[in-house]
Design a protein around this nucleic acid. Structure first.
Lengths: 337, 337
DNA sequence: TACAGTTGAGCAAACGTTTGAGCAAACGAT
DNA sequence: ATCGTTTGCTCAAACGTTTGCTCAACTGTA
């Protein structure tokens, strides 16, 4: 907890000399010996500039809030890593905030910004929030970047190659010979869900396959919703031989439900999920997935908010790194009929 | 971004009057009408006290850092909820920091404290860290509470009823008739692991069962280590009919490995894991687990650090809420021999 | 009327940092 | 010897709060 004045005292110089030397200010006209004495004193006292004082002086904290809807979401861990690593490189710290905690207090997010705790906000929009959140953010006039959505122009945003991911999944299944493919999707209010659906439909069409409305659900990304979705499409007049699940957590639910119903995977039903995670390789059978560039998503989001803060540029990015198919054992050729 | 002086200007009073009124200072001798005018002005401007200025003034930020080794750890989500809710009630904010990021920079943790960004630290000690971490913390002279360990006296700590959990698991299996029970544990450098082992051994003894050293592993809490552990105990001269896994993630790995090896669960092998999570109910078969009071762990940890900061009291707590057995379908009676 | 006590409100310092401006000494050039 | 320029360093204000102190005006009492 040594302050500038402690260092100055020890080095026998003024506070301003210390400040300039330690921050390598170009305006620092300080003799070589004095400089050395200051450096030595700073090291001896283990001086570190007080965060609050700097924040007050510059009215910026170099802290970015990352608001996520759900810590158990498959997307979270890798994205967080990307955000943090980019943050470190750019001299920022990341303050993680759960959206639940946000909603509860009601004004937690306004506090975060209003009190000047953070310079900007990264919001991962989940299945639930959309209208009020966007409104609150735009109203708040706070630098923000939306993750997993693209509100063109209003505010920065960073999104995944959602449609490409769905296309890769369909191509894989179609390539195996599947013709009746179901799609268990998230809420249509969700940017990712509409784009994944678009990709699904486009590649089904390209493969010459019919999209049966009875094989489409939009229940959500949770395991329970995956289970429900599976039961629903199995009750269709002509049930699927394969399903694409728009989220790996939901897929894990669906897979577990399939086993409970005595359906063999992949013999009776192939399953491919969007998003990869450690859980996907530890199901039985291990899940075939389409891995999304979540780490890159995180990095780009951080880069976007940082550019916004320093240069004022607002961009709407779609991460260019392509999704990659990871073939495990939950997909195979359909049974001959 | 309205400041006190903005409010003062609008209300036509001095800054200090505003400060006293808005913070309900007992020393505030302010007339009722002035008071009302100040309140109105504050609301109109949406005044919020600047965080940095307060932090500078009081040299405390009301922010606590929570350092966790791994975001995918089963313990994390529930514990975090507990920490946050207790934090809100006590007027603190939580700054989440991954231990990986900590280790990388090397001094990130010292920065966190040294720069005065946080008032205290909650450290969840994982499988890997122990010696250097404790040393660094004690040396740092920073208020800290260790989660999942108990360094009696030195520093505050909060731990789980680890041995009780292992006992419950063994009792369940012994009650089903199992006699050869394996234990897949974490590293013996780990507080939780040594206590779970103690509980395991105690209840085996109480049940009149022999602890076979060939059925004990100490590989770790990751899925991969669960797989390895399973293979190891299956190679024992006289393999187990049931296993207790000290962590649910490792148990999921073990379960998946069992399927891969063609072992039926629970017919050929019963599995019970310590810690519950959403993943445990979505395996096949769903995992029998012993749920730990993680939410309470989080609350108590936050309470401990808060008490430490305000009253200076150092406590070493073991969460009293008992673990509870959640019977699903991965455990059953052993096959008759 | 004078005076102590109370009420209402403002002044100014301090927290630790940064930074424009100022000042004295040394230096080089005429 | 004088004058501008550079070098080396310090002063002081400012960021937004909090809070001890001061001060004026008013109240009630002697």
């Amino acid at each position: 907890m040594a302050t500038l004045s402690d260092v100055a005292l020890l080095a026998g110089v003024s506070i301003s000399a210390v400040s300039r030397v330690l921050s390598d200010a170009p305006s620092a006209r300080v003799g070589a010996d004095t400089r050395a004495r200051i450096r030595a004193a700073a090291v001896e006292l283990d001086y570190r500039p007080n965060f609050a004082a700097r924040a007050l002086k510059f009215s910026r904290t170099n802290v970015i809030a990352l608001v996520v809807p759900d810590l158990t979401n498959a997307i979270f861990t890798d994205m967080m890593r990307g955000v943090e690593e980019e943050a470190i490189e750019r001299g920022y710290m990341v303050l993680l905030a759960r959206a639940e905690g946000m909603r509860a207090g009601g004004d937690s997010i306004k506090r975060l910004i209003g009190e000047g705790r953070v310079d900007g906000v990264l919001v991962q929009v989940g299945d639930n929030v959309s209208a009020e959140d966007l409104a609150a953010l735009l109203a708040g006039k706070v630098p923000a970047v939306i993750i997993n959505s693209a509100q063109k122009g209003h505010i920065g945003s960073v999104a995944l190659p959602d449609s490409a991911a769905a296309e890769i999944a369909v191509q894989h299944l179609a390539g195996l010979g599947h013709r009746r493919i179901a799609f268990l999707n998230g809420s249509p209010r969700n940017y990712t869900a509409v784009h994944r659906l678009a990709g699904f439909e486009a590649s089904m069409k390209r493969a010459g396959l019919r999209v049966d409305p009875a094989l489409l659900t939009t229940l959500g990304y949770q395991p329970r919703q995956g289970r429900e979705g599976l039961r629903h499409v199995l009750e269709a007049p002509s049930p699927p031989s394969a399903i694409v699940v728009a989220n790996v957590n939901a897929a894990i639910g669906a897979l577990s439900e399939a086993r409970a119903l005595g359906i063999r995977v992949p013999e009776d039903l192939s399953i491919v999920a969007i998003h990869d995670s450690w859980t996907a390789e530890n199901t039985w059978p291990p899940l075939t997935t389409v891995r999304m560039p979540l780490y890159e998503l995180g990095r780009q989001a951080m880069a976007a908010i940082s550019d916004r803060l320093s240069a004022g540029t607002v961009k709407d990015v779609i991460v260019s790194e392509p999704p990659v198919l990871i073939v495990r054992e939950s997909t195979g050729a359909p049974r001959a009929r």
